[in-house]
Design a protein around this nucleic acid. Structure first.
Lengths: 159, 159
DNA sequence: ACATCATTGACGAATATTGACCATAACCCT
DNA sequence: AGGGTTATGGTCAATATTCGTCAATGATGT
């Protein structure tokens, strides 16, 4: 039951919890030796577990003194808030509903003005491409819209 | 964890911070002696760390009384920042370039970690839709990618 | 059985460090 | 002024050290 991937994932999360910094620097080589696996296993763990969608940002550098840096956004992830977001958005949303939702989140100080701006620009861009360049149906567009919005908000508000 | 290149980089950045001028004059010879390395190591640090992309311009002169001058780009005007962004991105970008650009902008405190996360999630979503659902060519995807990234960053930087 | 997730290893790409050799500017001496 | 000397900085290629990608294979769950 204790898969290697899960062990390594937990190890990294433990490191994130115990540090006061917002990130940890890992050595792929050392980690792989510590867990007795091939180095590319570490890449697999990072790619599958520490994604932006889950609230992590990863930087790395090759060569001498290379590293893999994992940055965490949130420590806690309240489950009810995820459901709340899903309920709020549903399967489809239009631009008007989006603006209402964002205004509400901003009013409750869950997102900043700049973050709200980013989300509006991103959804509008997708809307624009979807309608003019790709000629998608209105339903399809609102569905994509909902998908993007959910993913953006989940990545931020949750971990 | 102690990389010579990073030490030298930090030293120069410290000098830039503590001066009231917009630039510092360095002596390649003195610097290399101070850090106990070959002189060409300094060139490597300059070439890899103090690039226009990172907001620096470098002048130098050989011969007696030679020097290396590092100038910090001034991006006080929103218009200048927007142009800088456009130059960074160009007409097409892939995911790797995007990550570099975002890491750089965050390091220069032009965006926050949360904003960076939002941008990564948005571009990844578009990438996912563009490749799997819509089967766009790689060039087309990179071009759309650049379009979205420019718009997101410009919206932030013009504020 | 099929689909998804996990593991492995061969090969490739990026970064750091060093040193030999090249180029240029100031200074000094006729 | 001219030309040699000295003092700088620049370039490039070789080498070492990391990390990334991709495709094949194995394991696990439905």
């Amino acid at each position: 039951m204790a898969s290697l991937t899960r062990l390594i994932e937990q190890h990294i999360q433990e490191l994130l919890k115990t540090t006061t910094e917002e990130s940890v620097f890992l050595s792929r080589k050392d980690l792989s030796e510590h867990f007795g696996c091939v180095p590319s296993q570490i890449n697999y763990v990072i790619r599958s577990r520490f994604t932006p969608e889950r609230g992590y940002i990863v930087e790395s550098q090759r060569g001498g003194h290379g590293y893999i840096r994992v940055i965490r956004l949130c420590l806690d992830m309240p489950e009810d808030r995820a459901n709340h977001i899903d309920e709020l958005i549903g399967d489809t949303v239009n631009e008007q509903e989006t603006r209402r939702i964002l205004a509400n989140l901003q009013h409750r100080q869950l997102i900043t003005t700049r973050e709200r701006l980013l989300i509006e620009v991103a959804t509008r861009f997708q809307e624009e491409i979807g309608s003019s360049l790709l000629d998608l149906s209105p339903y399809k567009r609102d569905s994509l819209h909902a998908g993007l919005l959910k993913r953006l908000l989940r990545s931020l508000v949750l971990g």
